[in-house]
């Protein structure tokens, strides 16, 4: 029996290009689990995940990414936003780097002042609304 697929989106997107692999990622995110992908052949890890390995093009599988502490590699405070996010501006986009070297791009949502490169970040999760999920950084 087919179970009905929950309609989920990443961040502020309404992109309908949700593949089965990405749908699985979103369903884990709905449970506040961030998934990386690991190549089934060569073991290379990717964050965010990709279905095919960049090195050998073999299929990857999702595995939970458990690191929670990152450092701010760089940031931007977006004052003039693309039309779809205009109501959210200003917002802060960060590249966080984890101790493993894996990186993630997400918003920092609890800043009271302009961030500083190198500052500590914590990975967190959020339901923007019923369908939109996100990972994010907190300071």
């Amino acid at each position: 029996m087919m179970t009905e697929k929950k309609e989920l989106y990443l961040g502020y997107s309404s992109d309908k290009a949700v593949t089965p692999f990405f749908q699985e990622f979103l369903e884990f995110l709905d449970q506040e689990k961030l998934m990386k992908s690991v190549c089934t052949q060569c073991g290379t890890e990717f964050l965010p995940p990709r279905e095919h390995c960049q090195k050998c093009l073999s299929l990857c599988e999702l595995k939970e990414f458990t690191e929670r502490e990152a450092k701010l590699r760089s940031y931007v405070v977006v004052d003039f936003a693309p039309e779809s996010l205009a109501s959210k501006a200003p917002y802060v986009v960060a590249i966080g780097e984890f101790p493993s070297g894996l990186r993630l791009t997400a918003h920092i949502t609890n800043l009271m002042s302009v961030p500083e490169v190198g500052m500590a970040l914590k990975l967190a999760f959020d339901h923007i609304d019923e369908k939109k999920l996100t990972y994010k950084f907190l300071v």
Partner: peptide, 9 residues
């Protein structure tokens, strides 16, 4: 998939 949803202009 990974950048646009975060409004990276």
């Amino acid at each position: 998939r990974w950048e646009y949803p975060y409004g990276i202009s």
